[in-house]
Nucleic acid binder design. Structure first.
Length: 417
RNA sequence: CGGGGUGUAGCGCAGUGGCUAGCGCGCAUCGUUCGGGACGAUGAGGUCGGAGGUUCAAAUCCUCUCACCCCGACCA
């Protein structure tokens, strides 16, 4: 892609109301556009990264046997009434009416809908286990959107649902998801810790969250400095007098010591052992081999894509801009020329031909501006062509200060690695 | 939802009762530049968030309202 043809307009300063770093950088680099509080468009650069995250998630979940599907965003109230969540969940569930004044709910999550679908598929122990998932829009009437992409009212979630004969089957698939999730976060380029969390409005037998440790995080988590066991502060509780203090006498749930530390984290993934809450309420029943009717044992598993994207930036940036991990960068290469347009065009063509994702800054502006945007946008490699490079090209990593001179063939070989 | 804050050009801001509302960046044209957002010249761009009120006169004072941000509560 050429800069001159791209839907891009960078800005030296961020809007004043953007305070979190990911919000600022996403705005400055024109990765996103705020339509209203909690509603963002992903502009082409943002969407590139989004798609890469999407693909990584899909690959890893497919690898553990998740079959992809897609469910509606508008739900007839019927299913939400079956589980009583239509009334229990509170104002976060966005309710709407159609022209006939009938109730509908927007997809806050999809347990009810997937359970409804599962009734069409599952009726015997022979139909179990099953594992399906989707990447689909969620809408939640949040009391307060915040931090740009960190907490929005509409976002995309990868959500998967497991259906098992019994808790043993659930435990097994739950472990698979823990592995897959760790693998996803690793590939996306963030370090996470898994914490015990409360089940909240999901109900069920237990839940875990995947937290990226960051000061901008809105979750408080308590980490045992001895055995590293971590829990969401909502489980152990923080003292009422001071939200920064762990409740007196609190002990690690695992090793029972009191060496607990309070940290802040961003929840990037959440998995739930739902048990039979939904299958009982919605009558998702199977017959076992003794002709006994039993409720299916379920689990649900979710990752918010936009939040994950923002989290990566929270964890990976410097004073000049974003530092995208190779795996999810919009482009691999930011190509710059300094008054060497003809040569740059040739290099651009060769890189494209070699299948390298290259963003060519073909604007007629000074070098400082191009370097500035290269740092701001944060692609892993910067390639410069100038009178100084003399038939070669200069390669510089976003993370390094040093640059090296390479021939074009060497460059392509390097980038293909 | 409680508390706080902000709305003046695309972005950042100045302007606390007075005459054609300014500045920086950005944008347009021309020229000079060209290894870290360079310089000069000339331009374009604003119903001062909206409505109502007070006043001879309102961006400025009053009332209402809308929007956005931050802290908290809440959070599948």
């Amino acid at each position: 892609m050429r800069y001159s043809e791209s839907f891009i307009k960078t800005n030296k300063s961020a809007p004043k109301d953007a305070e979190t770093i990911s919000h600022q950088l996403l705005m400055r680099g024109s990765f996103i556009h705020p339509l209203g509080a909690g509603f963002y468009s992903l502009l082409p650069l943002g969407f590139k990264t989004y798609r890469k995250i999407y693909n990584i998630i899909t690959e890893e979940l497919n690898a553990i046997g998740v079959e992809d599907m897609i469910m509606p965003v508008v739900h007839p109230a019927r299913v939400w009434k079956e589980t009583n969540r239509f009334f229990e969940v509170g104002p976060e569930l966005w309710k709407i009416k159609n022209r006939a004044n009938e109730d509908f709910a927007l997809a806050m999550t999809h347990e009810e809908v997937v359970t409804d679908a599962a009734k069409q598929i599952i009726s015997s122990y022979k139909d179990l286990p099953k594992l399906v998932g989707q990447i689909q829009t969620k809408v939640r009437d949040e009391a307060r959107a915040r931090g740009g992409l960190l907490r929005t009212k509409e976002f995309t979630m990868q959500d998967a649902y497991s259906f098992d004969l019994d808790e043993k089957g659930l435990d097994k698939v739950y472990q698979k998801f823990i592995k897959a999730y760790n693998q996803i976060f690793k590939r996306v380029g963030v370090e996470t810790v898994m914490v015990e969390s409360s089940v909240g409005a999901m109900g069920g037998l237990g839940a875990n969250e995947f937290m990226l440790l960051a000061d901008s995080g809105e979750d408080k988590i308590i980490v045992c400095s001895k055995c590293k066991h971590a829990v969401n502060a909502e489980v152990l509780g923080v003292s009422k007098d001071d939200a920064k203090q762990i409740k007196a006498g609190a002990k690690c749930l695992k090793c029972k010591c009191d060496k607990l530390e309070l940290k802040r984290g961003i929840e990037v993934g959440n998995i739930f052992k739902l048990g039979t809450k939904y299958s009982v309420a919605q009558k998702l029943i199977y017959k076992d081999r003794h002709d006994q009717a039993k409720p299916v044992v379920m689990g649900s598993y979710g990752i918010g894509l936009e939040r994950l994207m923002a989290s990566v930036i929270e964890a990976s940036h410097d004073d000049f801009g974003i530092i995208w991990p190779n795996s999810i960068t919009p482009y691999q290469v930011y190509l710059i020329d300094i008054n060497e347009q003809k040569k740059a065009e040739q290099v651009y063509a060769k890189l494209l031909k070699a299948g390298i994702e290259v963003f060519y800054d073909d604007r007629e502006v000074g070098p400082g501006e191009k370097f500035g945007d290269a740092d701001l946008l944060g692609f892993p490699y910067r390639v410069t062509i100038s009178s100084k490079t003399k038939g070669k090209v200069e390669l510089k990593k976003r993370t390094s200060k040093k640059a090296e001179l390479l021939t074009i063939d060497q460059l392509i070989r390097r980038l293909k690695k």
